[in-house]
Structure formats: C-alpha cells, structure tokens
C-alpha cells in the first residue's frame, strides 16, 4: 500500500515540478503586464521539440538543450515586441485573444518547421528505474524535480539579490511608482517574457523524455499551468509553485486511486472547490476595492 502511495507521490511531484515551472512563467508575465499569456504552453512545446530535433541532427544533448532554451527565449521576446507591446492600450480580454492567436500561430509554425508526429527525447541519464521505499522512479523524474528545485532557487536568488530582480518586483507591485523611480518598465516587460519562455522551455525539455512531445502538446500543459496559477493565487510566485505541486499530486493520486479517465476532472473539481472558499486562490490575498 505504502509503496503504491510513494509511487503516486513520485509521479505527482514530477508532474507538479513541471506545472510549477509553467505556472511561474504565467506569474512572471502576469505580474509585469496583467496579461494571462495563453501561448505559455507553446514555450513548453518549443523547448521539447527543438531539443528533439537538434539531438536528431546529432548535436550533443547539453548543447541542444541550451539552443532550445535560447530559441524559446527569443520567441518569447519576439512575442512581446511584435504582439503584446503594440497592443498595450487594448483591454485585457483583447490581449488574451492576441496571445491565443500567438499560440495558434506558434503551433502552425511548429507543424511547418517540424511535423505532426509524436516524438520522444532520450532520457538525460538512461532509463533504468531506481527503487525507493518499494516504489520505482525514473532517473528523468529525478532530473525534473532536481532541475525544478534548482531553477526555483535561482529565481529566488534573482529576485532577492539582483537589482534587475528587484526592479521586476517593484514593477509588479506598482507600475507607476516603478516608472517614477526610473525603472524602464518596457524592458522589464520584455525580460518577463524572456524569463517566462525560458522557464517554459526548460519544463518542456525536462518532461519530453517522460511524456513525449508534439507540435500541439502546449495546449494541455498550458491549461494545467494556468490552473495551477489560479489554484495558488494569481500573482504569487509561492502560490504558483504550491498550485503546481498540488495539482500534480492531485492528478497522480486521482488517477491512481479514483479513475484515470477522470484524472483531469479531479484536478479541476479541486480548483473550483478551492475558489468557492478562497475566491482568490490559496495565497492570492484579499482584494481591496476603493470606492
């Protein structure tokens, strides 16, 4: 019994780490621009697919990964410059539709540049399962969790210790005030898209050896990332990570103990119940409207 639970916990944490990275990507962009970027999942897809194809061309894995992250980052910045920046004055709903357009565009691009087939990325370090507490875990899962934690720590350091990170936090808190103290808010916006795309790509590369990848995997994983963000509370980085992990674990246990067909429904039921009790997510804080 215990071994089974541990097994579910492993797969939940693996998924959760990925969701958390995607959710953090959403949070970064939301905090800088108040836009929910529906093309977030496409960064994940671009990361995975680029790596698959570069490895296919015979590039060593680390180089392929670096190039894939760089490619996604570039596309993220292009998205900000070419699609979001020109529409700064538009309503939030319009901006969301623009990012939906971008996600369709990127999917179309991926299917042109590559193909419509499913692809597997070889695991970073073999596929011999490791036994722990009667359960087994794939080395790639350890990679996903480990790199996930490392990226989180790196982000933490970035926001706590660097001037640029502090400027991003300041912009998230109060855009006008940030502008007044001389922060280049437009550069922060660009940076948030770059960082967010890089995080998404990293998630895509980490998960590709486990779940396969294709030009259209972004939709589903983007959806889960968005759900994780809302579960944790929009705008909160800690909330994004918490939401991602909870969602991953809920999915793994729901699939294991309740019904694998209903695993996605399970996660969404939880989110809706949480929102009924805490209308701004777990760590979203209270809304204060001044009248």
């Amino acid at each position: 019994m215990l071994s089974q639970a541990v097994q579910f916990l492993f797969s939940g944490l693996t998924l959760g780490a990925i969701y958390a990275l995607v959710a953090l990507g959403f949070t970064l962009i939301f905090n800088a621009s108040h836009v929910i970027n529906f093309a977030q999942g496409e960064f994940v897809m671009i990361g995975g697919m680029t790596t698959v194809f570069l490895v296919g061309f015979g590039l060593p894995m680390p180089m392929a990964i670096a190039l894939a992250v760089a490619a996604a980052t570039g596309i993220g910045m292009a998205l900000e410059k070419l699609a979001v920046e020109p529409a700064r004055q538009a309503s939030i709903t319009t901006l969301i539709i623009i990012t939906i357009g971008a996600s369709i565009f990127l999917r179309g691009l991926a299917q042109l540049v590559w193909d419509k087939k499913l692809h597997a990325l070889p695991p970073f370090t073999g596929d011999a399962p490791i036994g722990i507490l009667g359960a087994t875990i794939l080395p790639q899962s350890l990679w996903a969790m480990g790199v996930g934690v490392l990226l989180l720590l790196a982000l933490r350091w970035f926001f706590a210790r660097t001037l640029l990170g502090q400027a991003m936090l300041a912009t998230a808190n109060n855009r006008m005030a940030a502008q007044l103290v001389g922060i280049n808010v437009r550069r922060i916006l660009l940076l948030s898209f770059a960082l967010s795309a890089a995080l998404g790509a990293a998630a895509g590369i980490l998960i590709a050896p486990i779940t396969l990848t294709a030009y259209d995997v972004g939709t589903n994983i983007g959806l889960k990332g968005f759900a994780a963000v809302m579960l944790g509370g929009l705008g909160s980085s800690a909330g994004a990570v918490l939401g991602g992990l909870l969602l991953g674990i809920a999915e793994a246990f729901g699939a294991g103990y309740v019904s694998s067909a209903y695993k996605d429904a399970f996660a969404f039921v939880i989110i809706m119940l949480v929102l009924l009790w805490m209308p701004r997510g777990l760590l979203g804080g209270a809304a204060a409207e001044r009248v």
């Binding site: 004055q89 538009a90 539709i97 939906i100 357009g101 971008a102 369709i104 565009f105 042109l112």
Partner: peptide, 20 residues
C-alpha cells in the same frame, strides 16, 4: 500546411490593429 500559421497571424494582426 500554412493554415494554422495564417489563422493565428490573422487573429493576432486583427486584434492588434483593431483592439475593440
């Protein structure tokens, strides 16, 4: 093969040029 690409581009372009 260019269908998705064009559709996405047209959707983005229209919403950028006509945000309302």
């Amino acid at each position: 093969d260019y269908e998705l690409l064009m559709f996405g581009a047209l959707l983005m372009g229209t919403m950028i040029l006509m945000p309302r």
